[in-house]
Design a protein around this nucleic acid. Structure first.
Lengths: 211, 211
DNA sequence: GCTGCTATGTAACTTTAGTTACTTTTGAGC
DNA sequence: GCTCAAAAGTAACTAAAGTTACATAGCAGC
């Protein structure tokens, strides 16, 4: 069961022996939409390997204000969890299933061991970190260089990509939370994007017309 | 020569055998103030280990606009270089010596080999990535949650910390570049900070009174 | 001490984003 | 179809940040 899932996404990534081990020690888990996978301050006992679905990674400051960092897709892992698991430190992010998702949980005891044994694992870990670093840089670019209307449009198209749908089921308020701004601002800019012909607004739904 | 430098900062980090190898293959380099270490798009042939000094890491968008990501201190390495070196990819950042600095350049051929051979190297690499991820998150927090005046004050105190000086030799324009805003805005907010008694302004110099 | 360049100061204005307060629309559940 | 709560629309205002344009200050080099 785990094996088929693993095979279908990771057979070109990992060596057969590593897949065998993963099958042995990995714990399969299905996440419902909006289910919390990792919370701020959690001490991870392993790392999740995403088999299917989409996970939202958000950052929260002391005052409880949130901002979306990025999304994980199948084939991704959570670098921050890896960090937390290996160093017994705390996780600085929150991970929530954006839709129904499937993961394999790999216990932390194996993580270092596999780094020695499997080149494919080393590559995967390093790649994951790199992808995450790049994702973070993109987030920083977005925050530093783009205006709110551009950020919003990017948010919508990125999310549509991740969700593999051209119509997003979301409210203006939800977007405002993700982007750390107010609902009124989002409503205003969405209306503007609609006037530009890029999107079409419905209740609880946003249809994306241009990518 | 390299060995003494390495010993003084890394003897509690790396195993003796690894230090021996580093001494053999590492290339020592001294950087002048403002010397460019890594440029955007560079394909790294190794990773720099910082022995002393301070390196500024900046991000640039397509239009050539910059923003400071973070600083490296002695004991740090550039995770983005590591990424680039190991995967033969391009580096997404620019690294500039903020003051005279010393580095050891470790050739990329050894990087993976050492991951297998030395636990201390594995820990170091993973730690470096984690530190960098956290640093990036802090940058994101700053951009997303703080107002310009707070960001500026944080910039000044952070930089003073890194440079180990309470008086910074910098112009308003330079700060504006780092923070991706305009000189007028910085001058205005600096004046405000001065009125609050947190700093004292001089020509080409900013004295920090409160930390 | 004069020249000229760079850095800094500052006023006035524009734009963008955030806030408040209220209205209107929509759809689920009765 | 009516009720009601959640979602969305909107106006009016405030605040923060960016822009323009020009004035002044400080210092290096003559």
């Amino acid at each position: 069961m785990i094996r088929e899932k693993l095979d279908s996404y990771y057979s070109f990534v990992f060596e057969k022996e590593l897949m065998d081990e993963m099958e042995q020690v990995g714990v399969y888990k299905k996440l419902r939409e909006n289910e919390l996978l990792v919370d701020l301050g959690d001490q991870m006992k392993g790392v999740p390997l995403l088999l299917d679905g989409a996970i939202k990674i958000v950052r929260e400051d002391k005052k409880g204000e949130e901002i979306l960092l990025y999304f994980l897709e199948k084939g991704d892992t959570c670098a921050s969890s890896f960090a937390s698991a290996i160093s017994n430190g705390k996780c600085g992010i929150r991970a929530i299933a954006e839709k129904e998702s499937e993961i394999v949980f790999l216990p932390k005891e194996k993580l270092d061991e596999w780094l020695v044994k499997y080149k494919s694992w080393r590559n995967f870990v390093i790649d994951s970190y790199n992808i995450r670093l790049n994702e973070m840089m993109e987030t920083i670019d977005t925050l530093a260089f783009m205006r709110m209307d551009q950020r919003l449009y990017k948010y919508l198209t990125d999310k549509a990509q991740i969700m593999r749908e051209t119509t997003l089921n979301t409210t203006h308020q939800d977007i405002a939370y993700d982007m750390h701004t107010s609902r009124v601002v989002i409503s205003r800019l969405l209306k503007q994007l609609e006037n530009e012909g890029k999107i079409k607004l419905h209740r609880n739904k946003i249809e994306i017309l241009q990518f």
